[in-house]
Computed example of a mutant assay.
Amino acid sequence: MSKPNPLLAGVAGRCPNCGEGFLFDGFLKVAPACEACGYDFAKADSGDGPAVFVIMIAGFVVAFSALFVEFALHPPVWVHLILWLPATLIISLGLMRPLKGAMLAAQFMNKASEHRNDE
């Protein structure tokens, strides 16, 4: 059996090592270890990276769409609120888990770990 693409496995929420086990133990909580291969996720930490990417992507999509609708249709403010608040929530929640999985998989691919230099 060949090794999976770690980045695609991370986006799918699977173990970047084997592609079989689950990467998450909940919506965003990282599992302690892979249930299939036993790979330890204890040192995996994506930090704020996924949140920053989600803010950038969702912000661009919603802001561009809202401006386009405003200049094309001139709707009242309540229409903007009904359209763009739920859109922001759906896009943000929809992107958070795949992007967090991708960041964790990128750490796995690059063999990243915390480095300390106490000289």
Score class of each variant (00 low, 15 high):
P98L: 13
K3L: 15
R14S: 06
I90C: 12
A44T: 14
I82F: 07
F24D: 13
D25S: 15
P86W: 02
N5W: 03
K100H: 06
C15R: 05
P32A: 10
A66S: 13
V30C: 04
D25Q: 06
A102I: 11
E70W: 00
I82W: 02
L8E: 05
A87T: 06
L93K: 08
P4R: 04
K111A: 15
N5I: 04
C15K: 04
L89S: 09
R116E: 11
P6F: 01
P4S: 04
I91N: 02
L8N: 01
M96E: 06
H74C: 04
G47W: 14
L85C: 14
I90F: 04
I91R: 05
V61S: 08
A106V: 13
F71H: 13
L7N: 06
L95V: 13
G49A: 14
D45Y: 08
M103L: 15
A31K: 09
I57M: 08
P98H: 10
A87L: 15
I55M: 12
D40V: 05
V30R: 01
F24W: 15
G59S: 06
S2Y: 02
T88G: 14
G38E: 00
F71G: 09
A33D: 10
H80K: 00
V30E: 01
A31Y: 06
G38S: 03
P75H: 00
T88D: 06
P50S: 03
P50N: 03
V52N: 02
G59V: 05
F108N: 07
L23M: 12
P6G: 03
F68T: 04
P86Y: 08
V61Y: 11
A112E: 14
G38H: 00
L95C: 04
P6R: 11
G94A: 11
W78Q: 05
G49F: 07
A42L: 11
A105K: 07
Q107V: 04
A9E: 14
A87R: 04
V69Y: 04
C34R: 00
G21Q: 01
K3S: 11
C34I: 07
I57P: 01
A72F: 07
A106P: 02
M109C: 10
G10H: 09
F71Q: 11
G47T: 09
P76L: 02
C34G: 03
L73Y: 09
C18S: 08
E119L: 14
K3N: 06
E20T: 07
A36W: 06
I82K: 05
D40I: 01
A112G: 15
S46G: 15
F71Y: 12
G10M: 04
D48N: 03
